[in-house]
Design a protein around this nucleic acid. Structure first.
Lengths: 203, 203
DNA sequence: CTCGTTATTGATTGCGCGATCAATAACCCC
DNA sequence: GGGGTTATTGATCGCGCAATCAATAACGAG
């Protein structure tokens, strides 16, 4: 029945949360006005009252998701406790790789958005920005590492190392989402450490 | 006008090629019966005559694509000419990373399929299999490398190394598709080589 | 030349989607 | 408690899609 119920931000957030619930369950393709409305227990029309279009809703959902996830990544930062620069960056990588399987729904959603972004300029920009931020997060760690032993890391730049680290983690994400059983995070981490001859990042 | 024209495999292939043309231009979402039919200059109905459903068409297109691409990867195999095992695997990685930007359409298509695969079991299996094959392609190279200097590569297994190499290349693919201008393949390769202290794979 | 076969057509059906909007019920203020 | 405001509804429109199918034109066989 029509009429005022909740107002302003409350409903917006309800609907966004509902959209996330639907997306987590049925992926981006399942996020339709009707499905979101049903999940939020409102009428389809209300979705368009708060978000002018489904497109707009998707953009705002991605914003919400990015904000949330970056915070989550910053949590548990005891990286500073690790003295050895090599061990520190390995730990950072390990932490991220181990985080992936636990947040598989979310990672899958990111890939959905990633693909959507290849055609949707606004989303593309947001994803780019997200990836850039992720990569840049490695840069201070990489810089410290390179500075700590210039001979060993001759030819390695902080930017280059950050980029390689990001590529590696993102590649792991791909494999994990597609076939979690097949992917052996421990083996990959051990291999990486042995390759680079650095501590494996086990705290 | 109805009637017999070409028959059997000819039309099937026409339609598959048309589907690929459409997909390359407009991505998987653009592959509709109408669009493919228009591209192949036949009527929409004919698409269903040869492929029972659009789903089926997409599966066969992926098969076609995988077959083609694996062949393409095998081409130019002068890897055997490179004596040093480390240089050889680095060259393999470099070759793939440099291939990515040139075949961006195709890579984007793979990602479309990848997303589709997260909900479509048959496609998921095919993509998994493709990724496995890709990873396994590194394994002989990795095995030779490890065997060539067991001390240096203590703790590195062929499987682990192959997996790491695949993750890295796949991560590069992600970044390249999203932001080709930003991604510096040369820098990444140089960093990787310096990290592993192996020749950079420039022939 | 004819007749059966078959590849091909295009109109059609049904569906789910995004989006719109007039009607309406809940709320606030005076 | 009445009237203006606004959040909310649900029926509705138009669209593009996958899929169906009766009609039909091209062909081969005899």
């Amino acid at each position: 029945m029509p009429g005022r119920r909740a107002s302003e931000e409350k409903r917006r957030e309800d609907i966004l949360r509902a959209a996330f619930a639907v997306a987590a369950r049925e992926r981006l393709g399942g996020v339709t006005a009707r499905a979101v409305a049903a999940e939020a227990k409102v009428s389809p029309g209300l979705v368009f009252f708060y978000f002018e279009s489904i497109d707009r809703l998707l953009v705002e959902l991605l914003e919400w998701l990015l904000a949330q996830t970056i915070i989550a990544t910053d949590l548990g930062t005891r990286l500073a406790d690790v003295a050895d620069p090599a061990a520190r960056i390995m730990l950072a990588i390990r932490r991220d790789v181990e985080w992936l399987p636990r947040q598989r729904e979310r990672v899958e959603l990111f890939f959905d958005y990633w693909v959507l972004g290849t055609r949707h300029p606004a989303i593309r920009r947001m994803i780019r920005h997200g990836l850039d931020r992720y990569r840049d997060g490695f840069e201070p760690l990489a810089a410290t590492l390179v500075a700590s032993d210039p001979d060993r890391y001759a030819g390695v730049t902080a930017k280059g190392l950050a980029s390689v680290a990001a590529s590696f983690v993102e590649g792991c994400a791909l494999q994990i989402v597609m076939d979690p059983a097949q992917f052996d995070a421990e083996r990959s981490m051990a291999t990486l450490s042995a390759l680079v001859r650095a501590p494996a990042g086990v705290a």
